[in-house]
Design a protein around this nucleic acid. Structure first.
Lengths: 205, 205
DNA sequence: CGTCTAATTAGATATTATTTAAATTAGATA
DNA sequence: TATCTAATTTAAATAATATCTAATTAGACG
């Protein structure tokens, strides 16, 4: 069964000690003793975790005399969640949430680029991330909790862009709005957290 | 701490029932009762798993009267391990290991394209996946267990391509070989399993 | 308000994971 | 061979998870 493979892959990454091992290995190979030392656990614990990481093909091992050097298997890591490799590979420079700052920065520049000075949408971005930013901005001008008829939505969108049908469809598709029996309503849930990772990953679908 | 976020993300995907929920949702939204029915668990169990998936932003929810419809959050899924979305989105068509077959097929075509009829390497591919296939093929001509001097390696590589220095470096970098005090030796471990997922994911680094 | 339905919560239980100390193995070296 | 070192295995304790039943909540609607 293919399912087990996927589950085991994620189990391997679902433990803080194992992630910390990978982070340490990102700076170069290390042997068991050193890993144990750096993580304040016993060598037996390293052995335990190493076997899980090995099963998931996340590490390589090479032996020199008595000592086994562990290193990252980059290939598997790149195909893993982008956030993970971001965490693992990030230079330990910046403070807490430079990520969020970067998202804000990108967001502002996209809005500036796609909206005219008087607030009209120049064009609908084709790149997903940019499209979402543009839609999100437009949706933020709708009233929370208010129920809109389809005609009202059309009028609203036409303030920004002539192709109201496309944009209305995108609103539904990306769940900025919900439609229930011809009545439209803003999704009260903040969506940005749902696609922040897009900023850093290639878009596959 | 950022680490917890990553760990929780993988924990969310580290359970077969939750993966199966996501597979079901890939075909469209479903409510708790139906999910419970299809997975042969109680609604309480669905609630439990839903809360984990929610924490990881893997699902969306919308309420209609009493019933809550769950749907996939595609944005997070696309940035997840490619293998996972492959599994989740794959048409339930083929048999067991069409994946492996496809890998073989690609491998053969790359070898045919990059090697001449008399076995010389035309050029070093720049795309990582292809490069690995080409290197792997060349490395397979080395003797397992034999110790090579640097000069012997150079001579060996020159059979295939003039730029022996680059290829020798790639051998080490991608761990087809190990170097220990000027002595080179083939990595006895089969490497292909370590990058099979590359076939299906974009290469980020 | 009373009833129906879907979802959630609480509590109990079984399974699985993590970790360590202690014993053992495997390789290197004197 | 004896000994040293790094790694592994084993056994046992502890913590975390998954699942169920039963009770409760939250809306919808007559």
């Amino acid at each position: 069964m293919q399912l087990d493979k996927v589950v085991n892959y994620h189990k391997a990454l679902a433990d803080p000690t194992r992630i910390r091992i990978l982070i340490l290995l990102a700076d170069g190979e290390l042997n068991g003793q050193v890993l144990a030392e750096k993580l304040s656990v016993t060598p037996a614990t390293i052995t335990h975790h190493a076997s899980k990481l090995r099963e998931a093909s996340l590490i390589n091992e090479r032996r020199v005399k008595n000592t086994i050097y562990f290193s990252l298997n980059h290939y598997f890591l790149t195909s893993s969640a982008t956030a993970t490799s971001e965490l693992i590979y990030r230079e330990h420079k910046g403070g807490a949430d430079t990520l969020q700052e970067e998202h804000q920065r990108i967001q502002q520049s996209v809005i500036k680029n796609f909206y005219t000075a008087d607030g009209r949408l120049k064009s609908i971005p084709s790149q997903l991330k940019k499209k979402l930013i543009v839609l999100s901005y437009m949706a933020s001008k709708l009233e929370k909790g208010r129920k809109y008829s389809e005609e009202e939505i059309n009028v609203f969108i036409k303030q920004f862009h002539d192709d109201f049908a496309t944009i209305r469809r995108e609103f539904i598709m990306h769940q900025f709005m919900f439609r229930e029996r011809e009545i439209y309503e803003l999704n009260p849930v903040e969506m940005w957290a749902k696609w922040e990772t897009l900023s850093y990953s290639s878009i596959l679908r």
